[in-house]
């Protein structure tokens, strides 16, 4: 059963590698979010472009948009989970501050 030759393996290996690379590359491009939506108590309090830098101050939280990434700059809650979530930039990602009922979502 010596059917596969060396160049077959090289060709197949190259193609598998190429598809893997494209998967990763396209995966990151595709999921790049466009808009930032901030909700408090289920009502939208802010909606804006992800590419536009800025700071949104809420009653208990401060959300910062910088270089296409969003993070919770500060929160007055005890657990600080939202602050520790770090930066988000991809579509569907969220930062949630449960004590203050704030949801930052990327669309």
């Amino acid at each position: 059963m010596k059917k596969l030759k060396r160049f077959d393996i090289i060709l197949i290996g190259f193609l598998l590698f190429a598809s893997l690379v494209l998967f990763t590359v396209f995966g990151t491009i595709k999921r790049k979010g466009k808009r930032v939506v901030i909700k408090q108590n289920d009502t939208v309090v802010y909606s804006g472009e992800l590419s536009k830098d800025g700071e949104v101050s809420l009653k208990h939280n401060t959300v910062k948009i910088e270089n296409g990434e969003v993070f919770m700059k500060s929160a007055d809650c005890k657990n600080q989970i939202c602050v520790k979530t770090g930066k988000i930039s991809k579509s569907g990602e969220t930062i949630i501050c449960l004590p203050n009922k704030v949801i930052v979502e990327i669309e």
């Binding site: 030759k5 060396r6 160049f7 077959d8 193609l15």
Partner: peptide, 16 residues
């Protein structure tokens, strides 16, 4: 026509 490629490689190249 390439001697270093078996029909499997040819078929893969064609399919892709």
């Amino acid at each position: 026509k390439m001697p270093k490629l078996s029909p499997i490689g040819v078929s893969v190249a064609g399919a892709v």
